[in-house]
Design a binder for these strands. Structure first.
Lengths: 240, 240
DNA sequence: GTTCACACGTCAACGGCGTTGTCATAAGGT
DNA sequence: ACCTTATGACAACGCCGTTGACGTGTGAAC
């Protein structure tokens, strides 16, 4: 039996046979367990063997449900998009709505960094994504942005949110050793540079260490929203 | 001999001994070969064993130069930064300088998309990176931004540039089939949605297809620069 | 010019990974 | 109650990063 014939689509499953340890597998259970594994034990804990152990089945049993680990991660990504958009409703205040949605997307993706790094750059064209495009464009057009402007700001908003999510998520995917070393580079290397050779770094060392310890996304988001607001004010006064 | 004693810093090397196949190793040669390997055969081709084969040495010889593959990646990242900073000189116009540097970094990273996706998120603490931090902070403080403001804007500027570079690079890394499918999603799926169910997408379809076909970075950069300029004007008028 | 410490390339091995071919067995339609 | 076959289990393959031991050629010292 070749690999392409091994996977059985979820709808066509007929015999739900428990594993030796008693669990009954399903696509849904595997996706949920994968997310739980990432959440509880870090991104590095996601291996087919460990996932099998967490599910109480042989690792190879997973290949009855997904062609390979990439297909499993895409299923996880799809679940993630659904969770992110669920429960968000626009209030009518465009700036607050975009701020809330941006921070929410950023946070939700960071909660599952392994899936986020693999997923952020993809355009799926699936229902959850389409609903988000429609909603964000609606917020911008409802605020009074002309169509061309709304599209441009939509593009910046979405790509910036996803790219920062990917960037921040990728640091969470590093090994424990690499991540702590990364964090310590600012106080240990940059904060100790002499003012003679590096005056600007030395003068701002304290602020630099504090600033680089957190994500730049909230500040970047505020700057984009401020620029958009300025643009909206300009549009309103010149072409009402 | 423990792992921490195995690596010899480049400056302290005394005996340059050729490998069986005749190549003389060096940090520089290893980094260059790594970039070439990634560029020619993709990021997935970067393994210690393949790198050893490309260099004509035993894979374990690399551990005389780098503690582990992560340290090697940091060296590669710094080489990319160095290539970007080479030739850039501030003119005194902070906004034009940051615009030029941002677009240049973005373009240079995209020229090595395979390496970019692996290294964009890393803080190297190495010479080229330190020089770039010093230079950008110098531009901002020279423009009159107070230290706290300069650090915040530096953070947004750098992370935005690198994260967009990683995002845009990752689409270039997809297989030909996946990338064309991704591009066609906008005209084929989004542009065909009916106005009844998706009024905002339908109303902006033409602009949407055109906008999503290019990178959002230039527009995002302009918005951040505009917000920074507004902030600078505010600082100058209230606390001169 | 000989000596000699040791830097550094090589070898072999370890444990872990994703994946696949094969087998056995229990589920469920008949 | 039977048979088919879906599906889980097992074992093995060929990768991977990394390490400890080894020995050889280098370059400094005299």
């Amino acid at each position: 039996m070749s690999a392409s014939e091994r996977v059985v689509p979820e709808g066509a499953r007929r015999r739900r046979r428990p594993t030796k340890q008693g669990t009954v597998l399903s696509e849904q259970l595997i996706v949920e367990t994968t997310l739980r594994l990432i959440g509880e034990h870090g991104a590095a804990a996601l291996t087919v063997r460990r996932l099998g152990a967490a599910l109480g089945c042989d690792p190879s049993a997973l290949y009855r449900y997904f062609r390979d680990t990439d297909e499993l991660l895409l299923a996880v990504a799809d679940e993630l998009i659904g969770r992110t958009m669920r429960g968000w409703r626009p209030t009518g205040d465009w700036r607050a709505d975009l701020r809330t949605l941006g921070l929410r997307m950023h946070a939700d993706y960071l909660a599952h960094p392994q899936a986020a790094t693999l997923t952020c750059a993809r355009v799926t064209g699936r229902t959850h994504e389409i609903r988000s495009v429609e909603a964000i464009l609606g917020v911008l057009r409802g605020a009074g942005f002309p169509d061309a402007e709304a599209v441009r700001i939509y593009h910046v908003f979405v790509d910036q949110t996803l790219s920062f999510a990917a960037l921040d998520a990728s640091t969470l995917v590093l090994t424990e050793r690499a991540r702590t070393q990364e964090v310590r580079t600012w106080p240990d290397t940059y904060a100790r540079l002499p003012a003679g050779t590096h005056p600007n770094i030395a003068a701002t060392a304290g602020a630099l260490v504090a600033e680089m310890d957190r994500s730049g996304y909230p500040a970047a988001l505020e700057m984009v929203l401020a620029a958009a607001a300025a643009r909206l004010g300009h549009v309103r006064t010149t072409a009402p």
